[in-house]
């Protein structure tokens, strides 16, 4: 990562939009958004440029109302803990590290863990 003028430049960044997972992307970012994604294809560009670090959404919602992260975590834990047959699903647009945590969670709540592959 290097700092030129007020832009951060990240070389060899990895794009996770599609299965090609190109890792030769050069990202130029100000503090809040990526302004340039060199080497990226059109899909990759819009992926990088459309995701910002702005606070556009509430931290959490419970029953559609804004809530704190702490409350949301507790609510999630309560629902999952109480369920007979909880489902942990998705695992696609996320990291392996999060996936490993998700398996551990599924295991501690005695649930099913599944990804897009099963579709």
């Amino acid at each position: 990562m290097s700092q030129t003028s007020n832009l951060t430049v990240v070389e060899n960044a990895t794009c996770t939009f599609c299965g090609c997972v190109c890792d030769d992307i050069e990202l130029h970012a100000d503090g809040e958004r990526i302004v340039q994604a060199k080497m990226a294809c059109s899909l990759g560009k819009s992926w990088f440029l459309n995701h910002t670090a702005e606070r556009l959404y509430p931290d959490a919602l419970i029953d559609g109302r804004e809530a704190t992260l702490d409350d949301a975590v507790e609510a999630a834990a309560e629902y999952l803990h109480a369920a007979n047959m909880p489902l942990v699903y998705g695992l696609s647009n996320t990291t392996c590290e999060a996936q490993r945590e998700a398996v551990a969670l599924a295991e501690s709540i005695g649930g099913v863990v599944d990804s897009h592959t099963s579709l």
Binding site: M85, G110, G111
Partner: peptide, 8 residues
């Protein structure tokens, strides 16, 4: 019998 993760 099992109901999901719980034995009944």
């Amino acid at each position: 019998m099992w109901l999901g993760k719980n034995r009944r």
